[in-house]
Simulated scan of single mutants.
Amino acid sequence: RCCFMATWGLMLRAGPRLLRERRARVRAEAATGASSEDIWLKWGLLLVPLTAFCLGTWQIQRRKWKLDLIAQLASRLSSEPIPLTLDPMELKELEYRPVKVRGHFDHSKELYILPRSLVDPEREAREAGRLTSHAENGANVITPFYCTDLGVTILVNRGFVPKKKLKPETRLKGQIEEEIDLTGVVRLSEKRKPFVPENNAEKNRWHYRDLEAMAKVTGAEPIFIDADFRSTVPGGPIGGQTRVSLRNEHMQYIITW
């Protein structure tokens, strides 16, 4: 009994001290947790502007690269034409490069890429900044072209025609029958972009260049060139419908970041 009473007395005397120590530990742990949260918050706030700065700097470099690429492609368009090659590997390196061929068209197998508007740099310069555009809607006429020297048939984008001139019988004067020398720029196949309809070969409605499908329908090789403006004849499609179109939205991204 004496031993029990002594132990009970010690517990009573030590109780307040143990309680104080426990409360001190709880406060210390809470302070440590709050301190850790503050550290993470500070690092998070620091990373936000740092990340934005890095992304903005990266977009500046991307914009410079894109502008240089556009300039290179535009420079290609003005270079001297070279004979067309049939080597697929060489063709992949020749997009936007002028080439020359000799042969004749097969107008019975025309294809139509639509809708398209006339590429007219002078009009586009006049209407720059306007909310509305007065570009006429129509299509690009793609015609098989038998190359006499190469012994193969390729696909040629003869150029733009308005809707009312889509049917060949409405532009018989422009349907060249004789053998000619033709200059154009090499174009490669392209993938369907978002929201662009699928091509419909049965209805002859094409919305993007699918060279394999076009070649299958016409019996031509999957080689495609845009005829230059000098190929235009009275009553025929308007040539020179090559547009160097690369997305360049990097300035918007720079401002955003």
Rank of each mutant, 00 (worst) to 15 (best):
D210F: 02
E221M: 09
T85G: 07
D68Y: 08
V99T: 05
S117C: 09
S79M: 03
Y112M: 07
L114V: 15
A14L: 11
K203W: 07
R22Y: 13
F224E: 04
A227C: 06
E249I: 04
E136V: 10
L45I: 09
I176F: 10
Q252F: 08
L10A: 13
Q72W: 09
D228S: 03
I82R: 11
L166K: 11
P222A: 03
L94R: 01
V161I: 07
W8I: 06
P49R: 01
Q59N: 11
E179D: 11
E110L: 08
S133G: 12
P16S: 10
L10G: 09
R63C: 10
L41P: 01
E198G: 08
D226C: 08
L84V: 09
L182M: 10
H134D: 08
C54A: 15
R171W: 04
F160N: 02
L86Q: 06
D38H: 08
K92D: 08
A128M: 14
A74G: 14
T148W: 00
R230A: 05
S79Y: 05
Q59F: 06
V196E: 08
N204Y: 05
C54G: 10
R187Y: 06
G56T: 10
R116M: 12
Y208R: 12
P121G: 01
L12Q: 12
K165R: 09
E93T: 15
D38V: 11
P49S: 03
N140Q: 04
P222G: 02
I180N: 04
A14P: 02
G103R: 02
A215K: 01
D149G: 07
S133T: 14
A31N: 04
E80H: 15
K165C: 01
K164F: 05
C2V: 15
K191P: 02
R158G: 02
K167R: 13
R130D: 05
P237W: 02
K100F: 13
L111H: 06
D87A: 12
F53M: 15
E93C: 13
V152T: 07
E93F: 10
P83S: 10
K191T: 11
A201N: 05
Q252T: 12
E202Y: 09
D149K: 09
A30W: 07
T242A: 09
V156S: 03
L172A: 09
L166P: 00
S108H: 13
D87L: 11
E177D: 12
P194M: 04
P115S: 11
C54W: 13
L67Q: 03
F105C: 01
I223D: 00
D87W: 12
L188I: 01
P88W: 07
A24P: 01
